[in-house]
Amino acid sequence: MPLDPALNSLGFAKPPAETRVVVAMSGGVDSSVVAALLAEEGYDVVGVTLQLYDHGAALAKKGACCAGVDIHDARRVAEEMGFPHYVLDYENIFKDAVIDEFADSYLAGATPVPCIRCNERVKFKDLLETAKDLEADCMATGHYIQRKLGDFGPELHCAADAARDQSYFLFSTTPEQLAFLRFPLGHLESKAETRALAAKYGLPVADKPDSQDICFVPNGDYASVIEKLRPGAADPGEIVHADGRVLGTHEGVIHYTIGQRRGLGIGGLSEPLYVVKLDVDAKQVIVGPKEMLATRQVPVREINWLGDVGFDTQSEWHVSVKVRSTRPPREAVIRPLSATTAEVELLNPEEGISPGQACVFYETRGTRILGGGWIWKG
């Protein structure tokens, strides 16, 4: 909530009824609660749902966001709360900006994070521009993250509920986008509070399960999706020990990720082995002992910096970083190479760092997100 009593809860110096807010509605409980909450406060709410893919196509799955029943659920919430709701067909944009890169990254031996690209290239880009076209004062989403005003403008901070925090997936939010965005759920202490609000407003999605995995990947089966998108992608090859021994064969590099241990199909060995490298050109899966996964030097590019001064104005930044969404931040030193590239040195080695994942920067002591970038092979 703003400290200035002259401002409304979204930070504008006018009554809620004169403040138009576009709410990005996925059809789930989080964004539905945001829309209901703002409608009850008297804001001029406009709900917008993106259809990102054909819900009847083979790539989609039951219960995923942004298709089929979820569009219907978002519309029902809008009808219940009495505000307009629009569905925009973003299938082509989503395929070009997210799905194609997802497939190509896997084919190149990387492990992509399409949810970040969706926020960056679709929701916080095209949808945000649509909100401005609708003459909205701001756009609100159901993400669990906080926007706070600092000495130099809006800052991005972790959600109050660490278990729900989505900062890893939102590091690429630019300062310009952050000025226009609002995250009304970021201060809540638990998902239970969100569901209690949904019940309070009588929303039909109050008990709806959370969406799981990537929306266009059925049952987490990445390989089958990539084979549909890129026929012939699963060419067989060799599983090779780091010392050069050929241990077996595989049915396609796309079936493997860095750090994988289970399902390698090379049983009967005396030591546990892990995937330590994917050589796409040679069609080889390289395996080795666990200690080969430990990494301290992480090359990062396409950096989005949210600090108060220019990224490359200092030779070093002492921060904490996340190299996977499920891991806690670890202390590190960032050494800028340019305004958008850097070498990140982890004070303690991390295992299973993979090209294609994000490296997100945090204040060492605090909740602020300072930006991040994409891990690459170097």
Rank of each mutant, 00 (worst) to 15 (best):
L134M: 15
G378M: 07
P154I: 03
I71P: 04
I266K: 02
L134H: 02
E91L: 11
R261I: 03
E120W: 08
V34M: 05
T19I: 08
P2Q: 02
V321Y: 02
I334L: 12
V69G: 08
V69I: 09
D73V: 02
R121A: 13
F216T: 01
Q357T: 08
K283C: 09
I145M: 13
A103M: 04
A24H: 06
C138F: 01
I254A: 03
S26W: 12
G310L: 13
V246Y: 02
V98K: 07
V275R: 10
Y106K: 10
V240L: 07
F216S: 01
Y86T: 06
D96Y: 09
G142N: 10
A223F: 02
S190E: 14
S224W: 07
R330C: 12
E189K: 14
E345F: 12
M139E: 03
A64E: 13
E316R: 15
P231M: 08
Q51A: 14
R245F: 09
P236A: 11
C65G: 03
A342Q: 02
N348D: 14
G68F: 11
Q284V: 00
K283G: 04
A57V: 00
A162N: 07
F12S: 01
L134Q: 06
N304P: 01
H143K: 06
C158G: 11
G150V: 06
I99D: 04
S325D: 13
L185F: 06
G109E: 11
A159K: 09
R365H: 13
I353F: 02
D89F: 12
Y53P: 00
L188H: 05
E40L: 04
G366E: 09
S167K: 04
A339D: 12
E363Y: 00
A64F: 05
Q51F: 02
G63Q: 08
N8V: 09
G252H: 03
A160F: 01
Y274D: 06
P231N: 06
N348R: 15
T364S: 12
T174E: 02
N8M: 12
V22N: 05
V21H: 04
A206H: 09
D70W: 10
A39F: 11
A17Y: 04
V34A: 11
A24Q: 05
Q284S: 04
V225L: 13
L37Y: 14
V48F: 06
V319S: 05
G366W: 03
Y86V: 11
R76A: 15
V23E: 06
L264A: 01
R368H: 04
P15K: 10
E176V: 11
N348V: 13
I239E: 07
F124T: 06
H55L: 07
L88K: 03
F152S: 13
A294V: 02
T313F: 03
L38W: 00
K148N: 08
L247D: 00
L128M: 12
D161Y: 03
P231W: 08
I93T: 03
M1D: 12
E351H: 15
